[in-house]
C-alpha cells in the first residue's frame, strides 16, 4: 500500500502536512546543517533526508516573524521551563524585512521548500508594507499574519483579540497579495470562533491555530515576576488540549483549512490534530527537545497510515467532531 501524505490547503498542495512553527526554526539555516549531517552520517536511520536540500522534506517552511523595521525584542530573561512546557518572552526580535530579503531569502530560495513568511507589525500599515515588499520576491510562497503574539505591547495580539481589527488587517493584507494568506490566531480570547469568522469573511485562505497561551512565572526568591513584561507565551505539550479545542471549534465554525499547532511532539499528536479538524500541522517547541522531531514525524505518520490502512489524510480531517 502506498501512503500519500500530501494535503490540500485550498488550491495549494503540500507534499505532506508538516511545517515548522514560526519563531522556533529561524529561517531554517540552524537546522539545515544538522539535518544534512544526519543524512550524511545515516545516524538516524530511515529518515528520508536529502543531504543537499534537507529542508525539502517539509510541506512548507514558516519563518520567524518579519517586521517592516528591525525589532530588538525584549530585555531581561526571555525563557523559563514549565511543567511539560516553556514560557518565552522573545518579543519578535528580527532584523526587519530588508535584511530578511537580503540575508535569508536567497538561501531559502535554493532549499526546494515552499516558504511561508510570518508577518508582524505594530500597525496595519506595517503589515501591508511587509507584504508589499515581499510581493517582489518570487521565493515567497505565502504569508502568515501574526496577530496573536502575547510578547509585544503594540500590535501583535491586540489585533487578534478584536474581530473588527482582525478583519480589517486581513482585508488590507488580502488586497495586497494574491498569494495564500494564513492568519494566525490567539487562544487568549473568550470565543475564538468570532475572530475566525471575521478573518474568513475578510478573505483569509487558512488559519494557523494556535499562538502561545498567555502565562506568568514568579521568581519566589526575589518576590517578583520572572519576565520584565510580566506576561509571557506558553508553548509545548502543556498547551496541546487548548490547541485541539481551538482547532475543533474553528473547524466547526469556518470553511477554511486549518494548520494546527501547540505541543505536537509525537505522531499521536499529529493524528489528534487532524482528527480535530486540522489539514496541516506545525511543530515548534518539540524541535528544541529533539532537533529531528519533524523528520521523525514525517516517517512515523507514513508508518501510522500504513498500519491503520489510511490511504489519504483527507479521510481523517475533522472526523472527531464537537457535539
Amino acid at each position: 500500500m502506498t501512503v500519500d501524505l500530501s494535503v490540500q490547503l485550498g488550491d495549494w498542495s503540500w507534499r505532506n502536512p508538516f511545517t515548522v512553527a514560526s519563531g522556533t526554526f529561524a529561517a531554517g539555516r540552524p537546522y539545515a546543517d544538522l539535518w544534512s549531517q544526519t543524512a550524511t552520517t545515516g545516524s538516524a536511520d530511515s529518515l528520508a533526508l536529502s543531504q543537499a536540500a534537507p529542508l525539502s522534506c517539509l510541506g512548507a517552511l514558516t519563518t520567524k516573524g518579519v517586521s517592516r523595521q528591525p525589532w530588538l525584542g525584549n530585555t531581561g530573561l526571555r525563557m523559563t521551563e514549565t511543567a511539560s512546557g516553556m514560557l518565552n518572552s522573545i518579543g519578535l526580535q528580527n532584523p526587519g524585512v530588508e535584511a530578511f530579503c537580503r540575508d535569508d531569502l536567497p538561501w531559502l530560495a535554493r532549499q526546494q521548500v515552499p516558504v511561508i513568511v510570518n508577518v508582524s507589525g505594530h500597525s496595519e500599515a506595517d503589515y501591508v508594507a511587509v507584504i508589499e515588499r515581499l510581493e517582489q520576491e518570487p521565493a515567497v510562497s505565502a504569508y502568515e499574519l501574526n496577530i496573536s503574539c502575547p510578547n509585544v505591547d503594540c500590535g501583535g495580539m491586540s489585533f487578534g483579540v478584536d474581530p473588527v481589527a482582525a478583519g480589517r488587517i486581513t482585508a488590507l493584507s488580502r488586497a495586497a497579495t494574491d498569494r495564500p494568506l494564513i492568519v494566525k490566531l490567539t487562544p487568549n480570547v473568550t470565543d475564538i470562533t468570532v475572530i475566525a469568522r471575521a478573518v474568513e469573511a475578510a478573505g483569509a485562505d487558512a488559519l494557523s491555530l494556535i499562538n502561545t497561551v498567555a502565562g506568568l512565572a514568579i521568581d519566589r526568591r526575589r518576590r517578583q515576576l520572572v519576565f520584565e513584561r510580566g506576561v509571557a507565551g506558553l508553548s509545548g505539550p502543556a498547551i496541546k488540549p487548548i490547541a485541539l479545542y481551538a482547532v475543533a471549534r474553528c473547524h466547526q465554525a469556518v470553511n477554511l483549512p486549518l494548520i494546527g499547532m501547540g505541543g505536537i511532539s509525537q505522531v499521536e499528536d499529529v493524528v489528534d490534530f487532524i482528527l480535530a479538524g486540522a489539514t496541516a500541522v506545525a511543530v515548534g517547541t518539540a524541535t528544541f527537545t529533539d532537533p529531528l522531531t519533524v523528520p521523525r514525524l514525517i516517517r512515523d505518520l507514513g508508518q501510522w497510515c500504513q498500519d491503520q490502512g489510511v490511504t489519504s489524510l483527507s479521510e481523517l480531517v475533522g472526523v472527531a467532531q464537537l457535539p
Binding site: P30, K64, R78, M79, F288, P291
Partner: peptide, 16 residues
Amino acid sequence: RRMACGLGACLTCVVE
C-alpha cells in the same frame, strides 16, 4: 544564558 534550542534559532539566549 538560558537556552532553548542551542542552535541559534530561538533567540532566548541573547547577550547585549
